[in-house]
């Protein structure tokens, strides 16, 4: 379980890093989304992986058996904020494309 998830996180991170180093804005936005998946999963994983654990308090249930709620709460807001920043980045890149006529991350094509 842990092995698969950590491999997945690594692959997502690698793909994300590769993409944010590319010259086109769209590649960067896709890369950032992949990175945010990886980071969210990583933070989530810090709480320990539990399969089939109760997520909701029930009468008489032992609290130790429950999934760790703290990373979940962190990740939940991170997902929503991630959407907002993606939207902001998208709008900025569209505006930059309109102003500069190119979708290169530097706002101008490289001469080389």
């Amino acid at each position: 379980m842990e092995l698969v998830l950590s491999l997945g996180i690594g692959i997502m991170t690698g793909s994300g890093v590769w993409l944010i180093l590319r010259p086109r804005t769209y590649q960067v936005i896709v890369g950032l989304s992949l990175l945010s998946y990886a980071v969210n999963l990583f933070i989530f994983g810090v709480g320990g992986l539990k399969v089939n654990a109760p997520a909701i308090l029930a009468d008489g249930s032992k609290t130790a058996a429950l999934a760790d709620p703290v990373p979940q709460a962190l990740v939940l807001t991170a997902i929503v904020i991630g959407f907002a920043t993606t939207a902001l980045f998208l709008v900025v890149l569209l505006a930059a494309r309109g102003l500069t006529g190119t979708d290169h991350v530097d706002g101008r094509e490289q001469s080389q």
Partner: peptide, 30 residues
């Protein structure tokens, strides 16, 4: 760079997840 970042993240995530979860503030909330 992408490969070493990805590999590093994998190893890190794996190491963290294999640690026994210590007594955290989670218990307080629960």
């Amino acid at each position: 760079l992408a490969v070493i970042c990805g590999a590093g993240m994998s190893i890190l995530a794996y190491a963290v997840m294999m640690q026994p979860v210590p007594d955290t503030i989670a218990n307080y909330f629960l």
